[in-house]
């Protein structure tokens, strides 16, 4: 089955991100297709390049990156929700005159149209929220 994930919860404040990442891994282990993860609302914080959790806790940002590296799952972040919350890639940082950037590939800033496309294209869109 073709799945997609919509993640709305902030990392570490809520269980949503941990559950979403575990669900993503379980899908792959069962042989399902995961066509994309879309980060919206407070879920955009999962793309924070500078996240530095204690070493004895799961590193969610690295977890998503590994999922992309190993399975090629696109990691799409709503650009409007991200910019409001201080999550900018290099291009947006330059455009807004900010020093430094807080989002890097494989996370990509994109529009909500991608979420709708993803949801309609897949058999199941599973939402993880607070």
């Amino acid at each position: 089955m073709r799945y997609a994930i919509l993640l709305l919860g902030a990392p570490y404040s809520r269980q949503a991100s941990h559950s979403a990442l575990r669900f993503a891994r379980a899908l792959v282990a069962r042989g399902h297709g995961l066509e994309g993860v879309f980060f919206y609302h407070d879920g955009v914080h999962n793309a924070a390049r500078l996240a530095a959790p204690p070493q004895d806790e799961p590193h969610l940002v690295d977890g998503w990156k590994a999922l992309n590296r190993e399975q090629g799952v696109p990691l799409q972040v709503c650009i409007a929700a991200a910019l409001r919350r201080g999550l900018l890639d290099e291009r947006e940082a330059a455009r807004h005159g900010k020093q430094g950037h807080s989002v890097e590939p494989p996370f990509e800033l994109t529009g909500l149209g991608q979420l709708v496309d993803l949801g309609l294209r897949c058999d199941r869109l599973v939402t993880f929220g607070p």
Binding site: Y40, H41, A80, A81, G111, L112, G113, L115, V116, D117, L120
Partner: peptide, 19 residues
């Protein structure tokens, strides 16, 4: 909270794409 606004944004974008 921003829930309602972000939900409406998703609806508007989908409609703008002809959904």
């Amino acid at each position: 909270s921003s829930w309602l606004r972000e939900g409406l944004d998703a609806a508007l974008v989908a409609a703008a794409f002809g959904r």
